[in-house]
Design a protein around this nucleic acid. Sequence first.
DNA 1: TACGTTTAAATGTTGTCACACTTTTGTTTT
DNA 2: AAAACAAAAGTGTGACAACATTTAAACGTA
Lengths: 156, 156
Amino acid sequence: MKIEEEIKVKSFSSDWQRASINIMYTGNWLNLILEKRAAKKQITLQQFNVLRILRGQLPNPSTNNLLKNRMITNTPDISRLVDRIVAKGLVSRCKNKEDKRAVDLFITEKGLALLEEIEDDMMLNDLLPQNLSEQEAFQLSELLDKFRGSIPPEEV
Amino acid sequence: MKIEEEIKVKSFSSDWQRASINIMYTGNWLNLILEKRAAKKQITLQQFNVLRILRGQLPNPSTNNLLKNRMITNTPDISRLVDRIVAKGLVSRCKNKEDKRAVDLFITEKGLALLEEIEDDMMLNDLLPQNLSEQEAFQLSELLDKFRGSIPPEEV
DNA sequence: TACGTTTAAATGTTGTCACACTTTTGTTTT
DNA sequence: AAAACAAAAGTGTGACAACATTTAAACGTA
């Protein structure tokens, strides 16, 4: 379904406008689906993303700071986000020996098991290949990289 | 800058994965920029979007419901969102004569003036054409439409 | 060494979001 | 016309987000 129909707009002032709106709309569309799938296991999408990052770092620990740099969406409140997954027993937290300011984070067995269970569903492999060829997906990603250009988001 | 560098990922499990992550990342990137620009005039991006929709409906009124259907991002709490712009004097609200359930919304003179002031900045005309040709922007939008396919987000 | 600066994380506060539920009005069915 | 249903908006609540500030540790440098 075209973006014009989705949000009932007759026309856009330019193709750049159309693309911008479409990126935000589609990002939100993706978010809705993924939040819904994550909710089946009583976690949020952000919590899922944190778990994936933690697993990706194994056997090394991660820190709040590392998480911040790798999150897809900006998360200034990473401390309390981690609080919540620690409370669920999916992550363990202990002080770093070398840098006493930092905190080492590890995904627990429980966290790993949950990832295993949910991951297939979160990949959207049941959806995406229906709509887009892998070639087109590649091209889409290239265009998005180009869309952002080289401007760091803080400076705009 | 490639998405791999932005979030420090070595590789993705597929091009669909890469594209999905990139859409969310770029959506967030856009959001950050637009929120920042809207904040210069003490409004949020959602409030700006509401004002644009209201103006687009002129000379007709809008309703909460109409807004909900046209917002780029899901907004279940549209009532209170409108409360806030009404409180700022940017929108006026009065009961619909025909359907007593509905509420008619109009953008005020103050709202129109604010749109005028801020709109150029919000278009990102200073940014986007540097990075992407209009042709590419067109293509990007087409790919995003295709990415979502025909599945309504509630059913996924 | 001592000082100022930077960095990592935590916290306090305020506002907003998400979800479910309620109220009121309109529409449909029998 | 009455009952059942659907739709529009509003509300109560708890979780979460954003922003600024704070605390503690590390670093850099004179």
